[in-house]
Design a protein around this nucleic acid. Structure first.
Lengths: 207, 207
DNA sequence: GTCTATACTAGGATAGAC
DNA sequence: GTCTATCCTAGTATAGAC
């Protein structure tokens, strides 16, 4: 008894399909029908679980953001020199993007999406939440940069501005990284290390 | 005689309005009516000059890309050490983005837009052209990095990968830079210098 | 050339069957 | 809970007046 399949996370399955669909065609370019097809069902199922397309889109972003913060925050507030921590945060974030491309790509779409006009008050709340989380994630990086500058481990940069430069390099990865068939975890790890090095040390610094 | 107002560049005016509209609402989120309203006319005028929305979108991108290459190419292929040239290219490109935000923002939208499916053969040609130009611009940066590494002026980075990191920082500027009322050319120049410094020298290098 | 109709369609959303 | 059938709006595009 009580054999109910462990709550197959019906919603989660839909969210994943949506992430894939939005990644390929963008928000406006994807129809609910496309998401349904990606899933092998009809929109009835989706509309039973979600109020509409925007809600689905937001849920993809919320999940992506949850992953990011869960990954980065412990490192940012953990032990080690600012330099060590920042390196680790960047490297892991980069790796996560490679591993969860659909979610991460949709998250970026959300940044430049302008749903402000066409949102209900309740959606507006979710949007505000996402913006706050976005800022929070960025601040985790900025904070560690600030510490490193204070300790003299980094040169005197403006942490807020440097944070923008760093986020840009990271986010842009979602646009150019294409998973390869011969793409092993080890290769990804190596690339992540290289990227983090370039992002933090530029052309003239030392790894 | 021959007082015909100097070809008021009817199309150019429309393209500028379209750039502003697309910047605010994105491609799919903007209607031709919105562009017309931005211009203070009706869509009749737009459809007389352009075949449709996609063509308009492409023309905004073509113009943006033209500006970029016209700015960066002479510096890339000009005189000076790789380091000096790369600094100059980056700084000027960043400044251009601040000065031409609508065009530059739309250009980025185009990168992640997936119009492949819904394009006529003739539009497909334009899209291919844009992709080629995008690659060409990036290669201008990559080439100079390569020279600098070869000359030992830079440390041994993979120029192709470093190019991605650099482009990301530059492109991301379109997402966070907000022109201020008290924004003078001098202030923009200063910010551009700072950004270029961070992008090329990171946290541990030397300006 | 630009405007004012209007045709046409894609796609978001809902109702009701199962 | 998922499917099928349908409604309905938004927005592209065109035709014809001016």
């Amino acid at each position: 008894m009580a054999e109910r399949p462990p709550a197959p996370d019906n919603r989660a399955e839909i969210i994943e399909a949506a992430a894939r669909a939005f990644m390929v065609n963008g928000y406006a370019g994807s129809s609910i029908d496309m998401v349904a097809e990606e899933l092998g069902c009809t929109k009835g199922r989706i509309y039973y679980q979600f109020k509409g397309k925007a809600d689905l889109f937001f849920d993809v972003q919320k999940e992506a953001m949850r992953m990011n913060i869960a990954l980065v925050e412990p490192i940012a507030t953990g032990k080690g020199s600012p330099r060590k921590r920042l390196q680790e945060m960047t490297e892991r974030q980069v790796q996560l993007i490679m591993e969860q491309l659909p979610f991460q790509r949709v998250l970026v779409q959300g940044v430049e999406m302008h749903l402000e006009g066409s949102t209900t008050p309740s959606q507006r709340k979710v949007l505000d939440f996402l913006i706050a989380q976005r800022d929070r994630l960025e601040q985790l990086f900025v904070q560690v940069v600030k510490e490193g500058v204070r300790d003299g481990e980094f040169r005197k940069v403006d942490p807020r501005i440097f944070g923008k430069v760093l986020m840009g390099s990271i986010v842009w990865l979602t646009m150019w990284y294409k998973p390869r068939p011969d793409d092993t975890p080890a290769k990804r790890r190596k690339l992540a290390r290289e990227l983090a090095d370039y992002m933090l040390n530029g052309l003239t610094g030392k790894a």
